[in-house]
Amino acid sequence: MNTDVLNVLKQRRSIYALGKEVKQSPDEIAKTVADVIEETPTAFNSQTTRAVFLFGDKHDQLWDIVVKRLKSEVPTAEAYAKTQEKINSFKAGFGTILYFTDTAVVKQLEKDFTLYADNFATWAEQAQGSAQLNTWTTLANNNIGASLQHYNPLIDELVAEAFDIPANWTLRAQMPFGSIEAPAGSKDYMDRADRFKLLK
């Protein structure tokens, strides 16, 4: 079998040592990622995923919001210093993609297709995962490192206010990205016998 896609998937790793030495422009990155998200399948072609692209001062503003919000959640000054170091590694990147789900679309689908109403929220989450993986892999294929972070819901209201996010958009993840300043560590895999079943 052709393994081109598999080989690209193997490039996708969580990169935490990010820099700003990205060859592509913000406009080029945003357009490519928008294209990727548009081509990502969704149940009922519902297109529930939304994305906000942050560069420059807006990128920095996001991670300033995060580190300030986390101060009240971290028990000690020592722990907070480690938190600051982690957040600064994201801020050191070139940009951030914020992923949202449009809950207004989900709710409308629940009304329009009552037989499947209990599934639309789950399907929206599946769409998120697909869009995030496709984007992450595309970035990796262009030698751009990224990781996926989840500081929601702690930062939801602050992010909505700072970036004028519609009330029906629910924050699902944050993807800081940039030049790869250090490679990812080794990756462990569980025993396939515990994970897969082949029936013939």
Rank of each mutant, 00 (worst) to 15 (best):
W123T: 11
D57Y: 04
L70D: 04
Q108Y: 06
T101M: 07
Q61K: 15
K10Y: 10
I87H: 02
K71D: 02
D27L: 12
D194E: 14
V105H: 03
V105D: 04
S89G: 04
D4W: 08
R172I: 05
T96E: 06
T122F: 01
A34F: 03
D164Y: 05
D102C: 10
K68S: 08
E39M: 15
K58T: 14
K31T: 13
D164E: 13
A173P: 04
D164N: 15
P26E: 02
T96W: 07
A193C: 01
A173G: 13
A79Y: 00
W63Y: 03
A127N: 13
T138K: 12
Y99G: 06
E110A: 13
D57A: 15
E38D: 11
D118R: 15
T32W: 02
Q47L: 02
I29F: 02
Q61H: 13
A17C: 06
D60K: 15
K107H: 12
K71F: 04
Q108D: 12
A173W: 04
F163A: 12
G145K: 07
A79H: 03
L18E: 03
T3M: 08
L6I: 14
E38M: 14
N7W: 00
Y99D: 03
T32L: 12
G95W: 05
N119P: 00
E28A: 15
N168A: 09
D191F: 04
A167Q: 13
V159K: 10
E38Y: 14
S186V: 12
F53E: 08
I180K: 09
N134R: 07
K58L: 07
K197S: 08
D64L: 02
N168C: 03
W136E: 05
A79S: 10
G56R: 13
A127L: 01
